[in-house]
Structure formats: C-alpha cells, structure tokens
C-alpha cells in the first residue's frame, strides 16, 4: 500500500510579475519502507517537491496524501502536528541548533512529543550509539566534523521513528567517503525501522545507492527506475 501518493502536483512561484513554474504536474506513488532518491539538475524542483511532501509548503494545484490523509485539507496547525508526529527532516547543511549538544538536539523531537525524561534519555542515547556517536553525546555541533553533525541530524530525524524521512541533498556538504557512510547509516535505519526515505541529490554515487531513482527535469518526472529495471 502506498504511504505517499502525489497527483498532478503543480507549483508556481511568483516573484513580482515573474512566475517560475517549479513543478509542472508530478505523479508519484511511494510505498512503505522505500529507499528512494530524487535526482535532477539544479532548479529542477527537487527541494520544492520535498517541501510540499513535508508539509512545509503548499502546492499551487494537485494533491499529496500521506497515509490516506490529504495534506490539502489540513490547517496550518495540523500540518505542524503532522510534521511533529510523522516526518523527519535531514538537511543539506545539517541545521543543528548550535547552542545545544548532540544529545539535546536529538532530544528535541521527543520533548515536542511530550515523552518522559527517562524514556527520552534511553532512546536518545541508544540512537546516538546506533549512529556511532557515543563519545560525542555532550558535544556541541561546532565542535564536530560535518559527517558527525550529519549523523546527529540523521539521529534527530529518526529518533521518533517517523513514517517518512525527507532528506534534501544530505550528502552535498560531505566528502564522498563520509557521504557514503551517511547513506549506509540511513539504509541501515531504513531496514531496521522500515521507515520510508526520500532523499534528493545530484550526486551519481548517491543515485546508485538508492533502490529507486526518480529523475526530475524542469519540474516533471523524466524517469522512474527501480534498481536494475526501468518501469
């Protein structure tokens, strides 16, 4: 069953009198547990698509439904709730909160969900061990390497075990070795929790890593391939 269904999604940006057609009719079906990459040249609409799927932006027309809920029907507050409950984000530039330690950064989603202190402590410590950062638990982001920061960010996105993880160019600011390690980490967690991963990239290595690759061009899906075969 599809976790995510995107139908005829259109997004226009208006800047003054100029209209940019960022998405020109996207149709997608994504199943639970998929490990999927969206690739395409700069400006092809990857970020726009992820933002709309992640309830951070609204489409001009078309629909997105997540677990059978049509995102269009949701009010602003409900969208925030949905993000809090079911979506994890990983960003190109990590976006950790610099004044908080690794532990505290990862803890935030659980605090927002109202978890108890004890339960939070255990869960956060476990996931930081899972991502291999047991020694950096009380470090602040600026005292960590990019790869370490991105692992904290991945842990932060996954700690609440959301149904959907959206990662916009998660490896773009990492060297290829660290990038690969991050992907492997995501893959591991994907298998462990059966959560759905969608990440955008324009890195060939990353595209090859995914089970399914969707190519965007000028706001349209130009190809949709599963590992090995073309659909």
């Amino acid at each position: 069953m599809a976790v995510l269904t995107v139908k005829d999604l259109v997004k226009d940006y208006k800047t003054g009198k100029v209209i940019t057609k960022a998405l020109r009719g996207i149709d997608l079906e994504i199943a639970q547990g998929e490990f999927l990459s969206i690739a395409g040249p700069s400006g092809s609409g990857k970020t726009t698509l992820l933002n709309i799927i992640g309830c951070l932006d609204t489409p001009t027309s078309g629909s997105v439904s997540l677990n059978g809920t049509n995102l269009d029907d949701l009010k602003k507050k409900e969208r925030a709730e949905l993000r809090k409950d079911s979506i994890g984000f990983v960003f190109q530039s990590f976006n950790l909160i610099p004044v908080l330690t690794a532990f505290e950064n990862v803890e935030i989603p659980l605090i927002l969900l109202g978890w108890s202190n004890q339960k939070r402590k255990e869960t956060v410590e476990n996931i930081l061990i899972d991502v291999g950062l047991q020694e950096y638990i009380h470090r602040r982001p600026l005292a960590m390497s990019g790869g370490q920061q991105q692992r904290v960010a991945v842990a932060r996105a996954l700690v609440k075990e959301p149904k959907l993880i959206l990662a916009d160019e998660p490896t773009a600011n990492l060297d290829s070795t660290t990038g690969k390690a991050t992907l492997e980490l995501m893959r591991e967690l994907n298998e462990k929790h059966d959560s759905t991963f969608i990440f955008s990239t324009h890195d060939k290595m990353v595209m090859d890593f995914a089970d399914r690759l969707i190519l965007l061009k000028d706001g349209k899906v130009s190809s949709d391939t599963r590992k090995g075969k073309k659909e």
């Binding site: 992640g54 976006n95 932060r156």
Partner: peptide, 12 residues
C-alpha cells in the same frame, strides 16, 4: 534557517 528548522521539526 535555524528557526525554519525548528518549525520543520514541529515547533508551533
């Protein structure tokens, strides 16, 4: 960007 991230995480 940090405030945007916080909103993305579900801060109201």
């Amino acid at each position: 960007r940090e405030l945007g991230t916080m909103r993305a995480m579900g801060f109201s």
